[in-house]
C-alpha cells in the first residue's frame, strides 16, 4: 500500500493505483485513481456549514440510484463511514461518506469494483483515511511521487502532471511568494550537464544567482543556489525584495531528478526555508 496526501486528506491505496484526475479547489473537489485497466476509486470533498444530515442524504441518494437503474441498492457502513452500495449491469460500486470536523467537509469515497467487491481492501482503505493538520506551519502533500512540505499560507496554484514530469506550484500573496516542487523521469534522455546547470533554467525570470553550492548527503549530490530579484520591481520596494533559493538532485535510488524552489522576501525567507522535498526514505532536502 502506498500513502497519498491531497488537500490534507491522507489515505493508503494499492501500489498500482495511480492518480489520473484531480482538482485543486479546497471547497469542492475530487481525485480519481486507476489501476492498469480502469478507474478504481474516487475521493470527493465538499465544504459544509455544520454537520450534515447524513441519514437524509443517504435516503435521497439511495432513491436517486434506484431511479438511475441501479439494482440491489442497500445501506452499508464501516465505523464512522456511512454509505450505499448498488449494482448497475455487472458493475458494483460502493460509496461511503463521512463528516470531517477538522475542516468542516463532507468526504465521499467511491469504490468501483471490476468484478467482486473486496471488503478487506475496502475496509483497509477506509481505515487509512485521516485529516493531516499542519505541523509547525507546514502542510504535507504526497502525490505523483512527490512527498513535500509546503508553508501553510501557500495554496496550490498549479499542477503540471505530464507523462514523465510533475511540477506542483504553491503561491501566497497573489503569486508574490512561491514554492515549487518538481520530479522528472527519463533523466538520461534529456539532461545535459549537471542538475545544478539545469536548475538555473528552472528558475523564474528576473533573478540573479549570487551563490551556488554542491554537497553530498546519503549518496545524493545536491546542487543548491540562492539569488536576488534583479532588477527589483515596485512591488519589491513595498513588500520586500524577493530572494530565491533552490535545489536539485538526482536520487540514486529511482534515478529521477528532484527539484524545489522558494521565492520569498527577506523577512520570512528563513522561516519558509523549512519547506522540504523527500525523494526516498531519510532524505529530505530543504532549499
Amino acid at each position: 500500500m502506498r500513502p497519498h496526501i491531497w488537500r490534507q486528506y491522507s489515505f493508503e491505496l494499492p501500489d498500482d493505483w495511480e492518480m489520473l484526475q484531480f482538482t485543486r479547489d479546497p471547497v469542492v473537489g475530487r481525485c480519481a485513481f486507476a489501476d492498469r485497466r480502469q478507474f478504481r476509486l474516487e475521493v470527493n470533498w465538499r465544504a459544509v456549514q455544520g454537520t450534515p444530515d447524513f441519514d437524509r442524504m443517504l435516503t435521497d441518494y439511495q432513491s436517486r440510484l434506484e431511479e438511475d437503474g441501479f439494482e440491489r441498492v442497500q445501506r452499508i457502513e464501516h465505523r464512522r463511514w456511512l454509505g450505499v452500495s448498488g449494482q448497475e449491469e455487472r458493475r458494483l460500486t460502493t460509496r461511503y461518506g463521512r463528516y470531517v470536523g477538522e475542516n468542516q467537509t463532507v468526504l465521499e469515497v467511491v469504490f468501483l469494483w471490476p468484478k467482486n467487491r473486496d471488503p478487506v481492501l475496502e475496509r483497509r482503505i477506509l481505515d487509512s483515511f485521516a485529516f493531516q493538520p499542519a505541523v509547525d506551519d507546514l502542510v504535507r502533500w504526497r502525490a505523483f511521487g512527490l512527498d513535500l512540505s509546503v508553508s501553510e499560507p501557500h495554496d496550490l496554484w498549479k499542477v503540471e502532471a505530464l507523462p514523465t514530469s510533475t511540477t506542483m506550484k504553491f503561491t501566497a500573496q497573489k503569486g508574490y511568494r512561491e514554492q515549487r516542487f518538481g520530479r522528472f523521469a527519463m533523466v538520461e534522455e534529456w539532461l545535459v550537464g549537471t542538475p545544478g546547470q539545469w536548475l538555473r533554467t528552472w528558475l523564474p525570470r528576473g533573478y540573479r544567482t549570487e551563490r551556488q553550492t554542491r554537497h553530498i548527503r546519503d549518496s545524493h549530490e545536491i546542487f543548491s543556489l540562492s539569488g536576488l530579484r534583479y532588477p527589483p520591481t515596485l512591488r519589491d520596494a513595498f513588500k520586500g525584495r524577493r530572494r530565491i533559493k533552490a535545489s536539485a538532485w538526482i536520487c540514486p535510488h529511482d534515478k529521477r531528478l528532484y527539484s524545489l524552489l522558494l521565492v520569498s522576501t527577506g523577512r520570512v525567507v528563513d522561516l519558509e526555508s523549512r519547506i522540504g522535498l523527500r525523494c526516498c526514505e531519510h532524505v529530505e532536502v530543504n532549499p
Partner: peptide
C-alpha cells in the same frame, strides 16, 4: 454525494 461515476473502464 456525487453523481454516477459513469463507465468505469479506462478509455
Amino acid at each position: 454525494m456525487s453523481t454516477n461515476p459513469g463507465n468505469t473502464d479506462g478509455p
